[in-house]
Amino acid sequence: MASVNMADVKRLRELTAAGMMDCKKALEESEGDFDRAVELLRLKGAKDVGKREARTASNGLVAVKHEGDSAAALLELNCETDFVAKGERFQELAADVVAHILATRPSDVPTLLESELNGKTVKELLDEANAALGEKIEIRRFSVLEGGYVGSYMHKTDPQLPPAVGVLVQLDTAKPDVAKDIAQHAAAMAPKFLSPAEVPADVIAKERALFEEMTREEGKPEAAIGKIVDGRVNGWYKDFTLLEQAFVKDNKKSIAKYADEAGVKVLAFARFKVGQA
């Protein structure tokens, strides 16, 4: 078996909450392939590993900027320590950049970095912050939702720090209370996709293959494997797609049903948690 780096073992343990030795064995068996190691832990019964991958792995903040009720931008700006994250300069930089994003609608992070803000490129502003604060400062991602009604929810995991979780929710109708409910739900339950129809084919193919491997390892009858795998895929949808998740305020109904009863359609959402993929 391949030797493994203990830093990778620690990272895998932080992401999955599996035991240290289990993580080491998974990395050895996967020959250092981190994603495969996660899959092996799931196969060996480390429950909820997929959900635990949402744990925070770095510092920074999530910032939001609205343009009326119909558009908003969400930004994740990262740094190395919470000391910098709670500093005024870092938070002002985030506010400036997220406002710039909403005003200019860049297509991606590289385009954003090359765009001009206050007479300098955004990259130059980040470099200046790096030098002044003594830490690596970087933009990890951003999202802009526009059209219909766009609501948001920002959550502080520590009252002394800026928001570490931010959610935008886009509805076809202006219902602020509904948007807030759904945004708070998304902040807590960490959906990855809006609906089963929006899950990329390669993602669900990978999950289906893993569930089939898991089912065979459990010794289930060959004739039943297809049905069991279908059930597990449907369960995955209920865990990771917003509209299929059970509403946190009433787990007898899905978010889709809650929205339908409220007379709205959920068009899109964006959820960022500092350090989360």
Rank of each mutant, 00 (worst) to 15 (best):
D181M: 03
A132E: 03
P163G: 14
K47G: 09
D158C: 15
D172N: 14
D8E: 15
K44E: 08
R13F: 04
G147I: 03
N234D: 09
L41Q: 10
I255G: 04
Q160F: 15
A2L: 13
V229H: 02
D239F: 00
V248C: 13
A26L: 09
L145N: 00
A46N: 01
G151V: 00
A18L: 04
L125N: 11
L15A: 08
T81Q: 06
Q184R: 10
A224M: 14
E116Q: 11
A131M: 09
A188N: 12
R52V: 00
L194C: 04
V229N: 00
V38S: 01
E124Q: 14
H100T: 11
I225R: 00
G60H: 00
V97E: 02
V150G: 13
A18Y: 00
R55P: 12
R105H: 15
L243I: 08
A26K: 06
W236Q: 09
K206H: 13
D108E: 12
T104Y: 02
K220G: 01
A57D: 08
I255H: 03
E114I: 03
M21I: 10
D35I: 14
Q276E: 15
P159L: 07
P110E: 01
K227V: 06
V248T: 03
A46D: 05
E217K: 15
A197D: 14
D181H: 11
E80I: 05
L77E: 09
D35G: 06
N251Y: 06
D82W: 10
L112H: 00
V62G: 03
E76P: 06
V109E: 03
T121F: 08
K24L: 07
H155I: 11
D202L: 05
L15F: 02
I225P: 03
E261C: 03
V122Y: 00
E198W: 03
L27Y: 09
E138F: 05
K192L: 08
V274G: 08
N5F: 04
T104L: 13
E135N: 12
P200F: 08
I137R: 00
T215V: 04
E28W: 04
C79M: 08
E135A: 09
D239N: 12
E218S: 14
E198V: 14
V98F: 11
K249L: 05
F211Q: 08
L93P: 10
L43T: 14
L74W: 07
K257H: 03
P106D: 08
A205Q: 10
R13P: 04
V266F: 13
D8K: 12
T121G: 09
T173W: 11
A37P: 01
V109P: 05
K257Q: 15
L93Q: 04
P191T: 02
A129G: 09
I225W: 00
V178Q: 02
E116N: 11
E76S: 12
W236G: 06
E212N: 06
A190I: 12
E128R: 06
G148R: 10
R55F: 15
M189D: 07
E138Y: 15
A85H: 04
E207K: 00
G68A: 12
A277I: 02
L168F: 05
G231Y: 10
A99G: 14
K253L: 15
V97Y: 03
L93I: 14
P200I: 12
K175L: 13
K273T: 10
V178F: 05
